[in-house]
Write a protein that binds this DNA or RNA. Structure first.
Length: 552
RNA sequence: CGGGGCGUAGCGCAGCCCGGCUAGCGCGCUUGGUUCGGGACCAAGAGGUCGCGGGUUCGAAUCCCGCCGCCCCGACCA
C-alpha cells in the first residue's frame, strides 16, 4: 500500500490516506453502508470524544486501562468503541417495545492506544471501523438481529471479493452470550484458527475442539505407588523413563486465579489453553511463578501432581487426600481414569496407579486442551489444520450488561420494565482493503476488483509528443468521465512509456487504456485487462461504449 | 512492560569499532540536450540542526551519560 502511494505512515500505527487510498476506503465504506442499510440499519455519527464519567458507569475505564486514550486537559477520552454512547442515547430515546428493534451504526474513526501497533494498517492506533449496535426486546429478537448482521457481513465480504470464513469465537471480556468472527487466512494475521480440510469446521484456536481418544479406564484398579524418577522433567522424558504411553500420564500446571492457586491436570503432553481456562474460571489467570511452585506444592515443575499438595493440605474425612486453598481441575479427557501417573509433589518422584476418583478431589472436568494440527474435526469429518488469520469482523450478542449499567430499559406488552437486549458488531475498514490487496496481487502489483478499485480505467498516454494521441486521450478522459466511468489519466510528460506501464500495473486498475501513435494510425485504441493481461484493440469511436459494458 | 535492532539529504543506505581535511553513495529533484511501446542517456546543479540534550577532547556523525522516536520478537489485545 505504501509503494502504491495509498498511505503514508505519520507515526507508529497512524497513517495518512493519500487520494488513491482514500478512494478505496470510501468504496469499502460505501459497500458496508449499503449492506447495513439493507438490513434496516440507521446511520449515526457518534462523538469520538467522550466524557470519562460515561465510561466509569460500565467500569470500562479500568477494563480498557492503557488501551484507551485520555485527554490531558479535560476529563475526556477518545472512544475505542461506542456501547456507552449508544446506551446513553437508548436510555432517553427507547421507552417501549414499540420502539424496538433498532440497528444503529456508524462508520467512524476509533482510537486505541495499542501497546504495539504492527503489520502496517492492520493494527493501528487510529482506524476506521463500522460499528453497529442492535437493540431488542427479547433474546429471540436479538438472535434475529445477530443473524441479519451475519448475513450483511457475508454480503459485504463477498462483494469486496474476499475469500473469508466464519469462526466461533471466545466472547471474552465483552461479556456476551455468543460471538462469531469473520476471518481471512493470512500469514500476517494475529489470530490463530483451526480449520477442517473439508471446510466443514472453523474455529478460533481459543475455543476450538476436536475429537481425540480419552484416557483409558482399566478394570484392574491398582493401588497407589511411588516411583523414583531422577532428573525426569518433561512428560516425554517420563514416558521414555517408564516406558509407557502418553495417555497414562498427567501433566500438572499451576495458575493463579486471583489469589487462588489452581492446579490443572492435562493428559499427556496436551497444551493448556489459557483462553478456555479463563472462561471456565471466569477470571483472569496467570501462571504461577516458578519460584513460588515449591512453596505451594512441595516440588518444582516436573514433579507436581494432584495428590498431597503442600499448601495447607489436610486429610479429608473420606480418607482420600484433599487440599484446602488449592483448586484442582482436570481436562475432560481425564474424567474417570485410573492407573494414572503424575507428579508426587516431591522432586524426582512420581505416583503411579492414581485413580482420580479414589485418590483425589477434582473440582471439575472441563475442556481445557489446545487443539493440535492433524486431529479430527468435532463433526468427525476431516482432519484439522492450524493457520494464521486476520479478523475482519466480529459480531457479539451482548445481552444486558451495558443496558443494566445505564438503566436503559423499555416497557413490554404487559407494562413490565425490562433491560434492552443488545448486540454489538464491528468491521475494520482498513482490514478489508489490506486483505483485498493481499488476496489480489501478482508480482507486478495490485489487481483491483472493480468493486474496490480507486478508478475503473487507467489511461496511459504513451506518445505525449504526438498531437493526435494527446487529443484522443484527453477527449477520451472527458467522455468517460461524463459517462460516469472513474478514470485515472497518466499524462505525465518526460516519463518513458515503460515507466508508465509499470506504474499502471502496480496501481492495478481493472482496465488500462493505452493511447499511442502505434495503433492510433489505424484508428485503434488498446485496452489491457489487468487481471489477465489480455489486450484488445477497439475502434476509438466504440471505446466509451465498450468500457461502460465492462463496468456493468 | 521485557528482549533485540535502528535513527546521517525527500526516500534507501555507507561512514561510527580505531575521533582529524570540504560528511559520502544510489534513487528522486532542478536546468539544458538527446531519447520516446515495458522502470532511457549525457552534462551541469540544488539539497544536511548527522534524532534531542549534556559530557569528554585542541577537535565528536564517530567515545561516555540521559532522553525521544521508529522497526522486529514476546507479554497484552473490547
Amino acid at each position: 500500500m505504501i509503494r502504491a502511494g495509498m498511505i503514508r505512515l505519520l507515526s507508529a500505527g497512524i497513517f495518512s490516506f493519500l487520494p488513491l487510498g482514500n478512494r478505496v476506503m470510501k468504496k469499502a465504506a460505501d459497500i458496508v453502508r449499503e449492506e447495513m442499510d439493507a438490513i434496516g440499519g440507521q446511520e449515526f455519527h457518534f462523538p469520538a470524544l467522550n466524557p470519562v464519567e460515561l465510561w466509569e458507569e460500565t467500569g470500562r475505564v479500568k477494563a480498557f486501562g492503557d488501551t484507551m486514550f485520555h485527554i490531558k486537559n479535560r476529563p475526556l477520552v477518545l472512544a475505542p468503541t461506542h456501547e456507552e454512547v449508544v446506551c446513553w442515547l437508548a436510555k432517553s430515546h427507547i421507552a417501549s417495545y414499540r420502539d424496538l428493534p433498532q440497528i444503529w451504526y456508524q462508520i467512524q474513526t476509533k482510537f486505541r492506544n495499542e501497546p504495539r501497533p504492527r503489520s502496517g494498517v492492520l493494527r493501528g492506533r487510529q482506524f476506521l471501523m463500522k460499528d453497529s449496535y442492535s437493540l431488542d426486546s427479547s433474546w429471540e429478537a436479538l438472535d434475529r438481529s445477530y443473524e441479519l448482521h451475519a448475513k450483511a457481513y457475508r454480503n459485504i465480504f463477498r462483494r469486496c471479493g474476499l475469500k473469508f470464513f466464519e469462526v466461533g469465537a471466545s466472547s471474552g471480556a465483552m461479556g456476551g452470550t455468543g460471538s462469531q468472527e469473520f476471518m481471512v487466512e493470512s500469514d500476517s494475521g494475529e489470530d490463530i484458527v483451526v480449520l477442517a480440510e473439508d471446510g466443514g469446521y472453523a474455529a478460533n484456536l481459543e475455543v476450538a475442539t476436536s475429537i481425540v481418544p480419552r484416557a483409558a479406564h482399566y478394570v484392574d484398579n491398582k493401588p497407589l505407588a511411588e516411583v523414583h524418577t531422577p532428573n525426569v522433567k518433561t512428560i516425554d522424558e517420563l514416558a521414555e523413563f517408564l516406558k509407557v504411553e502418553h495417555n497414562l500420564l498427567a501433566k500438572s500446571v499451576v495458575y493463579w486465579a486471583h489469589d487462588t492457586p489452581v492446579l490443572i491436570l492435562m493428559m499427556g503432553n496436551d497444551e493448556l489453553n489459557e483462553a478456555k481456562l479463563m472462561s471456565v474460571l471466569g477470571v483472569a489467570v496467570r501462571p504461577v511463578e516458578p519460584e513460588k511452585l515449591v512453596e505451594l506444592t512441595g516440588a518444582d515443575s516436573g514433579s507436581i501432581g494432584p495428590i498431597g499438595l503442600k499448601a495447607r493440605s489436610v486429610q479429608s474425612g473420606s480418607g482420600g487426600t484433599g487440599t484446602q486453598g488449592f483448586k484442582i481441575i482436570a481436562d475432560r479427557l481425564l474424567e474417570g481414569v485410573n492407573n494414572l501417573i503424575s507428579g508426587a509433589n516431591k522432586n524426582d518422584y512420581h505416583l503411579t496407579n492414581i485413580d482420580l476418583q479414589r485418590d483425589c478431589r477434582i473440582d471439575g472436568y472441563y475442556d481445557l486442551r489446545t487443539v493440535q494440527a492433524g486431529e479430527t474435526a468435532p463433526n468427525g469429518k476431516g482432519s484439522l489444520r492450524i493457520a494464521r488469520a486476520i479478523e475482519l469482523g466480529h459480531i457479539f450478542k451482548l445481552g444486558t450488561k451495558y443496558s443494566d449499567a445505564f438503566g436503559a430499559r423499555f416497557l413490554d406488552e404487559k407494562g413490565k420494565e425490562l433491560p434492552i437486549i443488545m448486540g454489538s458488531y464491528g468491521i475494520g475498514i482498513e482490514r478489508i482493503v489490506a486483505c483485498h490487496i493481499e488476496q489480489n496481487h501478482d508480482e507486478n502489483g495490485i489487481v483491483w476488483d472493480k468493486a474496490l478499485a480507486p478508478y475503473f480505467v487507467h489511461i496511459v498516454l504513451v506518445s505525449v509528443k504526438n498531437k493526435k494521441a494527446v487529443e484522443v486521450a484527453e477527449r477520451l478522459y472527458a467522455d468517460l468521465t461524463n459517462a460516469g466511468v472513474e478514470v485515472l489519466f497518466d499524462d505525465r510528460k518526460d516519463i518513458s512509456p515503460g515507466f508508465k506501464f509499470k506504474d499502471a500495473d502496480l496501481l492495478g486498475m481493472p482496465h488500462q487504456v493505452i493511447v499511442g501513435e502505434k495503433y492510433l494510425a489505424d484508428g485503434k485504441i488498446e485496452i489491457k485487462e489487468r487481471k489477465t493481461g489480455k489486450r484488445t484493440f477497439v475502434d476509438s469511436k466504440d471505446i466509451v461504449r465498450k468500457l461502460r459494458r465492462l463496468l456493468a
